[in-house]
């Protein structure tokens, strides 16, 4: 049985939805973060894909494309010791609480 990302030929009656959502700022910035980290040798496309493929199958199917990227990149940065999980949490809380 193929893994959830190995999508070719999966039975689906779904039509192709040709509506394109306008890119959100965070998606554009995440794409750029990935490129910069790649240029620095800190995160390759192959690692990004491995991180995406590690997302639980049910979650993989419900997340948007860049949401998968965000989760993969966060996990990889933590795995590599570039960032710590708790400092990301703290920074998010700071932004959310308006403490910055």
């Amino acid at each position: 049985m193929p893994k959830v990302h190995d999508r070719g030929g999966w039975p689906t009656g779904e039509a192709i939805d040709m509506n394109d959502h306008p890119p959100m700022d965070w998606e554009i910035r995440l794409n750029a973060i990935r490129q910069v980290l790649g240029q620095k040798g800190l995160l390759s496309s192959d690692e990004l894909r491995r991180g995406i493929e590690a997302i639980a199958p049910g979650r993989y199917e419900t997340l948007g494309y860049f949401e998968r990227w965000a989760e993969s990149i966060e996990s990889l940065l933590i795995e590599k010791g570039v960032l710590a999980a708790d400092e990301i949490d703290r920074k998010m809380a700071d932004f959310e609480g308006g403490n910055v």
Partner: peptide, 11 residues
């Protein structure tokens, strides 16, 4: 080789 690159190795 992506099977190696994906784990931070040289490929």
């Amino acid at each position: 080789n992506p099977e190696s690159l994906a784990y931070g190795a040289s490929g």
